[in-house]
Design a binder for these strands. Structure first.
Lengths: 345, 345
DNA sequence: TTTTAGCACTCAAACGTCACAAGTGCTAAG
DNA sequence: CTTAGCACTTGTGACGTTTGAGTGCTAAAA
């Protein structure tokens, strides 16, 4: 249990250290704090905080820096999100203000904006597609042997893929297959479609194609891709700013991490309505030891929920970052609702 | 003009320095060289080479390192490509052996292979499309408002893009436009198509659509993208290995350079049948000061020529790298000819 | 004329010493 | 409970020394 004064001191330690990067000592704190106590008193309190594992020393006679637990306590109990700076508001307005023709453009642009605002690396994830429905399927013959499969969902997402047909398949056959798919599967959610694809569809298709496996593979492929969570990353290069003393190896593993959709999904974790902060030492991945991750969901009502996140050094100004993430999720939700309203009408 | 012995010494200096990274002195050279002379003699020769600007000292009493001009002389006159290591041959065979369904897959995979072989960053560029021809165009209505434009070339490339039609356009109108395009433009090379698009096509289309601008934009867009040179990059992260003392800024500019197609095209320069080496100081871009670029074309007969390149530190083992690039261009050409043979038949 | 041994000289890198500044813990008095 | 005072610790940076690799030059040898 911390006293009021200890909280005040812990808050000051975190704020000072995240701003300057220098371990903070008792004298500095005594000057900074609103209360009037001597540095010796602060020293006693610092010792108490260290006792509880909230702060630590870099060497036996250094000032204090927050420990992982200290950051945790700070973000859980002591921090309060900063309001946006006027300048930041401008940036959001102007970058998100234009006309977009695809959801993906908005989401991808958002990653860029977030990374610009924070000067960290940002991730955005479009609203989950689990409950979007198949609204159409086409097979378009392109030439001698190539066919393009196109899949459209009711949320306006389009996924396509070209493939080779190795045997001679007639246009009539293709049309029959397309009609079958559209009759049987349109209107179902994507997971439902995937399920049906395992069940009765193969037999029905066998009426029109002698070897339906190849086709089913393609269809399953493009379907999975459509249903897959789609990540966008902004400000990749900003990671370079925080690689202490050019530790190339950990940088490399960091980059391979953020380029793998699965891994990132794993790290981001489950969506929750609150803005969540993960401190480096709390994350399983070793490459993230010196980083913190702030994640938040945004809510587009019946169109589902998406996620935004920023990845920066553990030593980041949390109040400002929480302010940015909090405000941006709202703006993004608004923008997307606008977009859907236009698209649905 | 260099004497035989001077050439031998320069070659030894470059080879030793590219291997060890340490400035090389007269004693080391005396031991290494096949001829039997004292270090003092070598010192005299080194002074002569320095006189000519081919080598230099890092400080007044250090060993010698090759200058930009020294590297140039070395690659122009002294180096001879190493034969591939058996291991490298295996890597190429197994990575390029499988079945590919798109040219782009082969080219992109090639960038990865090259970067693995060299542990540098590799670029690959698919055979130029300037003389490939438009072989088909489709407009596929996807839903209330969305339409997908698909363009196919005779080399099997497919390019597509979805767009919104803002007014109510009937399926008949779309079909008429598609028929017009296919009648008038199929069989022409892509540059020819682009040219016609500026000339008489707009008027003809105006017969079917009241405001053809939007459509022409889309068509031009997807056409340009199809005709555009397409780069693939492999081993991006390897650049991190050569950033001396974590010079974050130059690293960043390096990365933004290689992510911009236009800039890269610029740096790679014009194709030439010989394998070409550009030494850091010869390149205009400052971020490349400490790098060298080896580029080579590969030739797929009537299907045009493409390019491969590797970017590594100026201090790279040129003989080995030239061997790899030389061998790989052959393998790639063979593979592509195989691919086209299958596709064309 | 070319090569070589010898020698004085240069410089980076490694190392130890020293003083300094910032900070701590502890004690004893307020 | 707070604070002044003090001894103690440690990173940092300045400075001088030593060491080793390498150079240029000179004069003798080939």
């Amino acid at each position: 249990m911390l006293s009021e004064r200890q909280m005040m001191i812990l808050r000051a330690v975190v704020r000072d250290f995240t701003n300057t990067g220098v371990p903070v000592g008792s004298k500095t704190l005594a000057k900074q704090l609103p209360i009037h106590v001597s540095s010796a008193t602060i020293r006693n309190e610092l010792a108490a905080l260290e006792e509880q594992g909230l702060i630590e020393k870099t060497h036996s006679s250094s000032g204090r820096i927050p420990s992982g637990e200290g950051y945790r306590y700070y973000v859980d109990h002591l921090v309060k999100p900063d309001p946006l700076r006027p300048n930041d508001i401008d940036v959001i307005q102007s970058s998100l203000g234009g006309d977009f023709h695809k959801i993906d453009e908005i989401i991808s642009q958002s990653a860029t904006i977030l990374s610009n605002l924070t000067s960290y690396t940002a991730f955005t994830l479009k609203p989950e597609l689990k409950n979007s429905r198949l609204s159409g399927f086409r097979l378009v013959p392109l030439g001698k042997r190539q066919v393009m499969a196109i899949l459209v969902t009711d949320s306006g997402d389009v996924e396509n893929q070209t493939f080779d047909v190795n045997e001679t398949v007639t246009g009539d056959q293709l049309e029959a297959v397309v009609r079958l798919i559209n009759d049987q599967l349109v209107g179902l959610t994507l997971p439902e479609v995937l399920q049906k694809l395992q069940a009765d569809i193969p037999m029905k298709i066998a009426n029109y194609l002698q070897s339906p496996e190849g086709f089913l593979d393609i269809f399953g492929d493009v379907l999975t891709r459509a249903a897959q969570e789609r990540f966008y990353v902004g400000g990749r290069l900003n990671l370079l700013n925080f690689s202490q003393d050019s530790d190339v190896d950990s940088l490399k593993s960091l980059y391979s991490l953020i380029d793998k959709t699965d891994d990132i999904a794993n790290v981001l974790g489950q969506p929750s309505d609150k803005i969540s902060v993960q401190i480096g030492n709390e994350m399983t991945n070793d490459a993230l030891r010196n980083f913190s991750l702030i994640t938040a969901t945004y809510d587009v009502n019946q169109h589902g929920k998406g996620m935004i996140a920023i990845l920066g050094p553990t030593r980041m100004p949390y109040s400002r970052m929480l302010g940015i993430v909090g405000a941006f999720r709202e703006e993004l939700a608004k923008k997307l609702l606008d977009y859907y309203r236009f698209y649905d009408e």
